[in-house]
């Protein structure tokens, strides 16, 4: 196909500049990969999603005058790709495996936390979280948070991330995951019980390391 436009093919559009900034592009790729890997455990699939998002950014390069605009755009594409991947990934996970994971889950978790008449077990009562001294703006905190997320059963982790990271509506999650709203509510509830306990034990109430 011949291109009779006035711009010669050899000189890139002015905005291509953002992509010639190697450092920026590499850093962006790393950030995207990290974002994708938070949610998609298969590294190859995460790489592919990042690649596709980068390509669609190239294709729409004229829209971006600034690196920040490109970044916002590319992350919103990536987010949609991650949602697609999660949708597909679900089909490969047998229902029986979904609640498996370290520590206790499901009904057993609820039974361990609450007494027979539904009050907190004395030892399980939430403690006060002191954030000022234990500021969350800290690399060590994010390592703890990562570890707590990874310790969740796969189903808990995925639904929690869909809701809290991808900020999907509950109706959207139910539709994607073929879940009833009751089922989703219960799973998110258990995920939050587990996460808050993990953060409390390993961060907020942990002995200071220094």
């Amino acid at each position: 196909m011949t291109n009779a436009s006035t711009s010669p093919g050899s000189s890139p559009s002015p905005n291509m500049g953002v992509f010639f900034d190697v450092e920026f592009t590499q850093e962006l790729r790393q950030q995207m990969l990290k974002f994708a890997l938070l949610q998609v455990r298969d590294e190859q699939l995460a790489e592919d999603a990042v690649q596709e998002a980068m390509i669609s950014a190239y294709q729409n390069i004229d829209r971006f005058a600034r690196q920040a605009a490109l970044k916002t755009w590319v992350f919103s594409i990536l987010k949609n790709k991650v949602i697609d991947l999660l949708r597909k990934e679900k089909r490969h996970t047998a229902a029986s495996q979904l609640e498996e994971g370290p520590n206790i889950n499901g009904e057993a978790l609820i039974d361990a936390l609450f007494t027979e008449n539904g009050h907190w077990q004395k030892s399980e009562r939430p403690r006060k979280w002191d954030d000022p001294d234990h500021g969350v703006e800290n690399e060590h905190f994010w390592r703890v948070f990562d570890a707590c997320l990874n310790a969740l059963p796969e189903k808990y982790g995925r639904l929690f991330m869909m809701r809290e990271f991808l900020e999907m509506e509950t109706s959207e999650i139910c539709y994607n995951e073929e879940l009833t709203i009751t089922n989703l509510n219960v799973t998110l509830y258990r995920a939050r019980l587990r996460l808050r306990e993990c953060l409390e034990d390993n961060w907020y109430a942990a002995e200071p390391t220094s």
């Binding site: 950030q31 938070l38 939430p126 809290e164 808050r196 953060l199």
Partner: peptide, 20 residues
């Protein structure tokens, strides 16, 4: 406390995504 903490989980999650 639980109420405060689940809300905090939401705030932390948002910040986590921003950080990444």
């Amino acid at each position: 406390r639980f109420s405060h903490q689940v809300e905090e989980l939401r705030t932390i999650s948002k910040r986590y995504v921003e950080e990444s």
